[in-house]
């Protein structure tokens, strides 16, 4: 599943990040590591999302959001 599949406020857990090495490294540095807690706070234009990542807030475009493989936090 991808974050866009979840309702606003639903808590999810990151399973992995897809894409090339540079992209995955950049995201890992920002805290997108397996097990990280995520939730969707808002939806922007063209599929962009505002995400809560731990205590931080991160905006991602649709392409980046599609590289985040997530699952519901209670699974």
């Amino acid at each position: 599943m991808r974050p866009g599949d979840f309702a606003r406020g639903a808590v999810m857990r990151l399973r992995r990040v897809t894409g090339d090495r540079r992209h995955r490294r950049r995201l890992a540095e920002l805290g997108f590591v397996p097990g990280a807690s995520l939730s969707v706070l808002g939806r922007g234009m063209h599929g962009g999302l505002v995400l809560a990542l731990g205590d931080g807030r991160v905006a991602v475009d649709a392409l980046t959001a599609a590289t985040l493989v997530v699952e519901p936090a209670d699974e």
Partner: peptide
């Protein structure tokens, strides 16, 4: 660059 933007409070 793909957009990954830290949003400060």
């Amino acid at each position: 660059e793909p957009l990954v933007l830290d949003l400060p409070p």
